[in-house]
Amino acid sequence: MRNLMPLLVLMLPALLQASSLSAVPATQTASANAAKLLSVARAGERTVAVGDHGVVLLSDDHGGHFRQATSVPLATPLTGVSFVDARQGWAVGHWGAILATTDGGDTWQVQRLSSAEDRPLFAVHFFNPQQGVAVGLWSLVLTTDDGGKHWTEQRLEAPPGSKRADLNLMGLFADGEGCLYATAERGQLLRSDDQGKHWRYVDTGYSGTLWTGAVLGDGSLLVGGQRGTLLHGSADGARWQRVSLQSKSSVTAIDVSGQTVIAVGLDGLIVRSDDGGQSFHEQPSGDGVSLTATLLNGDGSPIVFSRRGVVSRH
């Protein structure tokens, strides 16, 4: 897969062919570890990864071994996951699906499902067990104040220079002060200071899609997107500087743990910093498989996921 191909090919297969919703549960399969995985989160000490066909993988040894979740009620692609502690978590995906778990990801229940249209959700973030936000296709923003029992769609204003709010919102990340960011198309970064109810646009100066982002240890922002784009910005989003990369492969996921920062992307791209994001060096994975998600362990070793499943601990 080349970096000129939009990442939506990985995340949105056959939207136009989806004519009806078949709410069947995910099946147990010996090949689950080879499923396309799109998002990962930490549930206490457990690693939880979600992906295609409703696959949920769990690891209790920091990515050394994975097993499939016991019960997932939908076999639709899952594109985002978030946990607030070792037991409570949420996953989102196609058909606007939102699933919840109270046992660390072993079993899941449906909180929301839209059978009228396949308007996928791409990312979810919970601040605490009650307040959460999910975002997706065509500026879809949903918020909850009761742990997901009820979800409310929030209206977005049109971005500067546009007549309507129709950007795809691709990722969510937050700082420790309750500020939430959403990465989007056209180089836009959205910021909310009230748990997703109101947003303002932050123009990064880039015109392509931003897939992912993170807050660094010093409070500054790092966002990644198409064509090897990695941008380092101030907390208010006023100043942006491009991180120089040799690769032109799209950046799909970023994680931060202390002074260690890792970004992964298409064509096996791995970019790492050990000084809090002041400098980066590239570490190609070797086989060129498109990498889709990553999570840093406490010792700085990353667990890496791809369109072919779990890659390895690097």
Rank of each mutant, 00 (worst) to 15 (best):
N3T: 15
M5D: 11
M5C: 00
L7N: 05
M11W: 02
P13W: 06
P13R: 09
L15M: 12
A23C: 02
A26R: 07
T29I: 03
A32D: 04
A34M: 04
L37W: 00
R42D: 13
R42G: 12
A43I: 07
V50R: 11
G51S: 05
V55Q: 03
V55D: 06
V56W: 03
L57S: 01
L57H: 02
L57M: 04
H62Y: 05
G64C: 00
A69P: 05
S71W: 00
V72N: 09
L74S: 10
T76R: 03
P77I: 01
L78I: 12
L78V: 11
V81T: 14
F83A: 15
F83Q: 15
F83L: 14
D85G: 10
A86Y: 00
G89L: 10
W90R: 08
A91S: 10
G93D: 04
A97I: 10
L99W: 03
D103G: 10
W108G: 02
R112K: 15
S115H: 03
S115L: 06
E117R: 13
D118L: 12
R119I: 04
F122T: 01
F122P: 01
V124I: 15
H125S: 04
F127T: 11
Q130T: 13
V135I: 04
W138D: 15
S139V: 01
S139Q: 03
T143Q: 09
T143V: 15
T143F: 02
T143L: 03
T144H: 07
D146I: 06
K149T: 13
H150C: 10
G161I: 03
K163A: 10
R164L: 09
N168H: 14
G171I: 02
G171R: 05
G171N: 14
L172E: 07
L172F: 08
A174P: 06
D175R: 05
E177H: 14
L180R: 01
L180K: 01
L180T: 01
A182C: 09
E185V: 11
R186L: 11
R191P: 03
R191N: 04
S192K: 06
D194E: 13
D194T: 12
Q195M: 07
G196Q: 06
H198C: 11
R200D: 09
R200E: 10
L210W: 08
T212G: 02
V215L: 03
G225I: 08
R227E: 11
G228H: 07
T229S: 13
L230G: 06
L231T: 04
A235V: 05
A235E: 08
D236T: 10
D236E: 12
G237L: 08
R239E: 13
W240V: 14
S244E: 14
S244N: 07
S244Y: 00
S244L: 06
S247Y: 00
S249Y: 02
S250N: 03
T252D: 10
T252N: 13
A253L: 07
V256F: 01
V256S: 07
G258L: 07
Q259F: 00
T260D: 12
V261E: 11
I262W: 03
V264E: 04
G268E: 08
Q278E: 13
F280Y: 13
Q283R: 11
G288I: 07
D299M: 09
S301C: 04
P302S: 07
I303G: 12
V304K: 12
S306E: 05
R308K: 13
V310T: 09
V310P: 04
V310R: 05
V310A: 09
R313K: 13
H314Q: 14
